[in-house]
Amino acid sequence: MSVKDTLLALLVVVIWGINFVIIKVGLHGMPPFLLGGLRFLLVAVPAIFFIPAPKIPLKWLALYATTISFLQFAFLFCAINIGMPTGIASLILQSQVFFTIILGTLFLAEKIKVMQILGTLIAAGGMAVLVEGGMGNTLSGIPPLGMLLTLTAGLCWAFGNITNKIIVTASPKTPILSLVVWSALIPVCPFLLCSWIFEGRTAIVDSIVGIKAPTILALIYLAFISTIIGYGLWGALLSRYETWRVTPFALLVPVVGLTSAALILGELLNVLQIIGVIVIMTGLLINVFGSRVMSRMAHHI
């Protein structure tokens, strides 16, 4: 990857890492399905009146929106709402990296190099250490259902990554911003329907009538910064590089997520979590730079 694209990937990491604290803030004033529906409504409107619709088959637009937007965030918001610590959630969600690499080999016939396998395995070990650290921390206990919901959210994100790759491969001139904005229309209805069924009319009315500044700011961040900017940049990177080059950067999201959760929410890191962060960063460095370093060493030999 070029230096510019590497910096863009790191910008997305920071945006998405802080995103978990923002979600927690938003959920203090609004139930999860309603928060998701209003988030994507703000992404789509008024942007759809200024940005042309992408010229791609509706089935791919619908699959992209359903996986990476509706299902991912429905599961994630519900997980955090039932007590999943935000820092640990930012970590477990990055299972999408491993799911994406596996799905990329199955559906896109992408080839994985030895260093990518080694780096991914090391990073996975770091994730395991982080989870173990969370289990023994002063954080509230990690709900088993919350863990399952977050893992499922990671799998949905991975399917969204693969769909994104299929779309931009079949239609290379598809504007990523157009894809993000127009796909945001699709999850609005299922989110609001789920809110009506599971959260109830009273909760919806009370949340909207009594909405406070922190919830409004959270919605603005989730819609414009996390979704339009974050997913716009992420989709652009996936359109230019193989999935195994891009998705490992997401392994740094938990580093930002855990740090911001510690600083803002008081979810303190313990020794095991710090070790896990270091191991994940090591795995990422091997994944991104390992093949290049080995090639230069072989050349000098």
Rank of each mutant, 00 (worst) to 15 (best):
I15N: 00
G210S: 11
V14N: 01
G266A: 15
I102M: 14
L252N: 02
N19T: 07
I166H: 09
V14F: 08
P32G: 05
T202N: 04
F159V: 09
I264F: 12
A262C: 14
I228M: 14
F249Q: 08
L91Q: 09
I216Q: 03
T169V: 12
A74R: 03
Y64L: 00
I176F: 04
P248F: 04
V25M: 10
V279D: 12
A218M: 01
V97C: 07
R201V: 07
A184H: 00
V180S: 02
L251Y: 05
V3W: 11
L252A: 12
L238Y: 14
R201P: 03
F49H: 03
L8S: 06
A128E: 08
L217F: 09
A170W: 03
A236V: 04
S140E: 11
V43R: 00
W244S: 15
S195Y: 02
V293T: 10
V188Y: 01
M84V: 05
I274T: 15
I68D: 00
D206S: 13
P190L: 07
I56S: 00
T227E: 00
S207V: 06
Q94K: 11
I102D: 13
R240V: 06
V45K: 05
W16N: 05
I68S: 10
I82D: 09
G200Y: 12
T282R: 02
F77P: 08
V21E: 05
I228F: 06
C78M: 14
Q116P: 10
V205F: 10
L222S: 02
N287P: 04
G136I: 10
C78A: 15
E199M: 03
I197H: 03
I186K: 02
A74E: 05
S95L: 15
S69G: 15
Y231S: 04
